[in-house]
Simulated assay, not measured.
Amino acid sequence: MKSVQDALYNWLTIEIVAAARPHDEAARDTASFFLAILENNFGVTAVKAAKDEASGRYVVEYRCGGETKTAHFPVELAEAIWRQIEAEPEKYGS
């Protein structure tokens, strides 16, 4: 991954899937993989995300270099993978 922004986006998209499908071990493992990239490659810690319905964005808050920072992602993009899985579950297992 070339940037923190890219790594945060990848983590967020699969974190949404893992939260919606708690039985999906592959989604949980993939979310952990991207979290490890954030921690090991970019020094990011304390990552958390919240959906802001009013703005139509996910707000990801994280710590990096001793500072609290935020990143914003459109709901439509952040939930695209989850919506695809929900629309065609037979392609992705249970």
Rank of each mutant, 00 (worst) to 15 (best):
M1I: 09
M1P: 09
M1N: 07
M1H: 12
K2R: 14
K2P: 08
V4G: 04
V4R: 07
V4N: 01
D6W: 14
A7T: 01
A7L: 04
L8G: 01
Y9L: 12
Y9K: 14
N10F: 11
N10L: 13
N10H: 14
N10D: 14
W11S: 01
W11R: 00
L12Q: 05
L12G: 04
T13H: 00
T13A: 08
T13P: 01
I16H: 00
R21I: 02
P22K: 05
P22C: 03
P22R: 03
P22L: 02
H23V: 06
D24K: 00
A27T: 00
R28M: 07
T30G: 05
F33A: 15
F33C: 10
L35F: 12
L38D: 05
L38S: 04
L38G: 04
N40D: 14
N41S: 14
N41C: 12
F42W: 10
F42N: 01
F42D: 00
V44G: 02
T45Y: 08
T45W: 11
V47P: 02
V47T: 07
V47I: 06
K48G: 11
A49P: 04
K51Q: 09
K51H: 09
D52P: 02
D52H: 14
A54W: 07
S55K: 15
G56F: 06
R57H: 12
V59L: 10
V60F: 00
V60N: 00
V60A: 03
E61P: 04
Y62M: 03
Y62C: 02
R63S: 13
R63P: 04
C64T: 09
C64V: 11
C64L: 13
G65C: 06
E67V: 11
E67L: 13
E67G: 08
E67W: 13
T68G: 05
T68A: 09
T70I: 14
T70Y: 11
H72E: 14
P74S: 07
P74A: 15
P74N: 08
E76C: 05
E76N: 13
E76G: 07
E76R: 15
L77F: 15
L77P: 05
A78T: 02
A78W: 00
A78Q: 04
A78N: 02
E79C: 07
E79K: 05
E79H: 03
A80G: 08
I81M: 12
I81P: 06
I85V: 11
E86I: 04
P89D: 01
E90C: 04
K91F: 11
K91Q: 09
Y92F: 15
Y92S: 05
Y92A: 01
G93L: 05
G93P: 00
G93V: 06
G93T: 05
G93Q: 03
